[in-house]
Design a protein around this nucleic acid. Structure first.
Lengths: 337, 337
DNA sequence: TTGTAAGCGTTATCAT
DNA sequence: ATGATAACGCTTACAA
């Protein structure tokens, strides 16, 4: 029996070395599979590792290499469907490549908050950062910081010089609007996202492009906050004003609230007004009426982000993906005029 | 000008020491605000720290203390509303206490997958783990592993001896069912969650308890997978069988799908059948008809989890919270018989 | 192919 | 109250 005062210490590289009858350096070489090592030596070491159930100490490794094998996620999007799906896939993709993931939720998007968040992540020694903070000003701050850390953003800021990627929001919004135009609508409103959001701008641009191209009148967008509650409010407000026959909402949540608002004020969808959303959240296919929307492949977005970031970190050729396709999902909420 | 070959090295504790004219050990003491240090010495050190913009190296600290100041989140719930909200608040609460957070998504809930996930987290030196893997079998594995790491689970397994906490699912489900009974319903079905899930069991128990207490007939539950698609399918199936007037669904997504299924088969809600869900997801208030459901405070759950875990880690008295209250949100989908 | 020595940046221990 | 010295577990040199 071992003495009670004995501290349980995890096996180290030296314990492995002793058991295998080699130097600790040889063990290290096996661990990092160095070229020159005799097969039988390697076998002995591997054996010892298995016997002792040895696991390398990541902190020690991080200390000496100044690489943590950890990625940071900087997020400013609490609990929304899209970003959440992306985050999950980022984590998975990262782990598959041997990286762990540290997530940090931004409470505010003030320069101070962003700065301290990035510094915090840097302190944690993350090797790179995935940014899911789709507010324009976050980009400004990030660029201004001149961070030496590699980073990728899931959203494309117009004129952004950093590496970034995104589904083609403009094209998706344009397709949605063109769909409405094709149905014979000519007075189409846009329920937009918050002013500061990159995606809100992209979706609005797609909407405006489509209308302009079809020589149709544009209306000043209604600025929402992405929430279903706001959509409901907008629906009630819009019921007083009947100069339109279709609404393109910048996301599904607002669209669903809008449907509710219309329902409560006696506006029938799609008979009186057609509605199209964006994102294709899981309930979009089940609300009443089922919601026509633009589908995005969020998980793929996350996977691509990791690929790009890791290439940067490793100094490899950064892959360039084509814009991620969005697809229009036709459902009941949009009908012909 | 500094030479080009000069490697940019972050300032270390020794650089600070040199600038402040003290030993590196004194700097360390200031950093960990040790008791015995002369105010003026401390001031000098703090000054030097500010000048150099010094930040302690977390890896080095982790190496020597074998504490990482990092919490692990082990999750097996991809993208669902509740867990996602909790995770966000766990991260926030942890950061507030000076801990960072490493999240790991479980792909499968096989013993092997769970084991390797926990080992991975342990390798990352996390000081404790929050488990959001509400499958019963995950608990068995976790307990069987006899992990020396402190851990907390957001779900309460019946008979679990580990520390855990949860909203009172049974009470919430019972309240939902009693609400239906109070409306005059006597034939109430339950659309349950997957067999293996703790919360599915709790919600079913609440349902059964309420029925038994009221001396009403119980029906074998319909086992779903939490998805809106399944709810839709169930709605269509149930339309052939009209021996009930109310359904209590184990979550909102299934309830929303169910509403859709009923709608498509001509069953009116709440006129023909009443429906109650669980979770109060943001769209629940906006679907048609608006969904009566049980509200849970997921963020608070996350905060409590962190408090309990940190108390364990620090060896303090583990706080014991009362069961988190759930509240019934009355909406249109439930009506009197 | 393998071993020896040094050092990563911090805290812990023992002096002073 | 402060300083010197030794770890922590690993990798990167360099030597054999």
């Amino acid at each position: 029996m071992s003495s009670a005062s004995e501290r349980a210490r995890l096996p180290s590289i030296r314990d492995v070395a002793r058991l295998a009858g080699v130097s600790h350096q040889t063990v290290s070489r096996v661990l990092n599979d160095h070229a020159s090592i005799r097969p039988e030596t390697k076998a002995k070491v591997l054996d010892a590792i298995a016997v002792l159930d040895y696991r390398p100490n990541l902190a020690a490794r991080a200390l000496v290499t100044s690489k943590s094998n950890m990625l940071g996620i900087l997020s400013a999007t609490i609990g929304e469907f899209g970003p959440t799906s992306s985050i999950a896939s980022i984590e998975d993709a990262a782990r598959e490549e041997g990286y762990s993931v540290s997530t940090l939720n931004l409470a505010a998007t003030t320069p101070e908050a962003i700065g301290s968040a990035v510094r915090q992540l840097a302190r944690e020694q993350v090797d790179g950062i995935v940014v899911l903070a789709p507010q324009v000003r976050v980009f400004h701050v990030l660029r201004g910081m001149a961070v030496s850390l590699p980073f990728v953003s899931l959203q494309t800021a117009s004129g952004s010089d950093g590496v970034s990627l995104s589904a083609d929001q403009v094209a998706g919004a344009r397709a949605a609007t063109e769909h409405l135009i094709g149905l014979g609508h000519s007075d189409i409103l846009h329920l937009a996202g918050p002013q500061d959001w990159i995606e809100a701008e992209s979706r609005m641009r797609g909407y405006l492009d489509a209308l302009r191209e079809a020589d149709l009148p544009t209306f000043p967008p209604i600025r929402g906050d992405w929430s279903a509650d706001f959509g409901y409010f907008a629906g009630q407000e819009l019921s007083r004003r009947r100069d339109f026959t279709a609404v393109f909402a910048a996301n599904d949540l607002m669209a669903i609230g809008l449907l509710h608002g219309f329902r409560d004020t006696g506006i029938r969808v799609p008979e009186d007004v057609s509605v199209v959303g964006f994102d294709d959240v899981p309930v979009a296919a089940h609300v009443a009426p089922t919601l026509t929307t633009v589908h995005q492949d969020f998980p793929e977005l996350g996977r691509r982000a990791v690929k790009i970031l890791l290439a940067q970190i490793r100094g490899e050729q950064v892959p360039s993906f084509g814009p991620l396709q969005t697809t229009l999902r036709l459902r009941e909420s949009s009908g012909s005029r």
